[in-house]
Amino acid sequence: MSNMSLTGKKRDYDTQRQLLGIIFIIPSVIFLLVFVVYPVCYNIILSFTDARLMKSDFSFIAFDNYKKLFQNIRFLKYVKNTLIWTVFSVVGQLALGLAIALLINKRANVTGLRSFLLVPYVVPAVALALVTKWVTNGDYGIVSWWLNWIGLLEYRQSPLAVPGSAMAVLIIVNIWRSYPFPMLIYWATLKGISHEIYDAASVDGCSAFQMFWHITLPHLKSTTTVLAILRIVWTATYFDLIWLITGGGPAGSTTHLPIMIYQTSFGTFQTGYASSISVILGLSLFVCIVFYVRKTISNDR
């Protein structure tokens, strides 16, 4: 009898606990539904309409926006820009992050240094963009002056006015801004590799490079995959820096898809058309997101 009531109590307790858990999650769920899920669906719907920015009514035009997009002769160029921007930025920040993590990994008193190296993570993109414009100013910028001095740039020219180098400047600035995140994660992963493995290898007479190649790198593989996916998604869609530094110029050489979305939406006011670009960009990143989510959640369990 008493046994029975105990299980009953336990069941009561479990239901109550479940209920509390659900109540606690409700605000988050509602918020996500209203301001994330609904907007995403709305975006997809808009992409099949001729919606304009200042009009509330619109009509469905099936795949016309998509047709128009794939016929646009500039679209391919912007896709290419997006790829260049993303690949170089991600590879650069991962490499730099790893290098610095390795540099500070084995040292004891690096907390101060680490704090300093994390600072770029929180520097406002706007401030960074303005500094970049200032140092690359054709007439008074110190970087332009240096580049001219070592013979890489014409006199009174700005690297932002030359297509290839404008993209290069943007990528460098973006690497500067975003290496701290990979650095931290790599640093944490390196800390997690047990010392015994290194000690054993050391006894076997492995060189430092061999240890790095055979022990450290394999341990970083999974971290690198997850990091790369996350950074690809964020970099491919990152807008502020390019917009504020070059605005997509010169000659559209730094226009990537987010800039194209913005210009279509707030330049020519074609909301529907802009949504279709956004959907294409989203779809191509969706694969990455799914992969990331699956990997992270399975690791978590």
Partner: peptide, 29 residues
């Protein structure tokens, strides 16, 4: 207003200035 808020003039003219596009294509665009 449409001309003022868009950037296709700038992008096209810059392309010609940098020799990435000829003037005929630019005017066509």
């Amino acid at each position: 207003a449409q001309i003022e808020s868009t950037t296709f003039f700038g992008e096209t003219l810059q392309s010609v200035a940098l020799g990435m596009e000829n003037s005929e294509d630019a005017i066509e665009y």
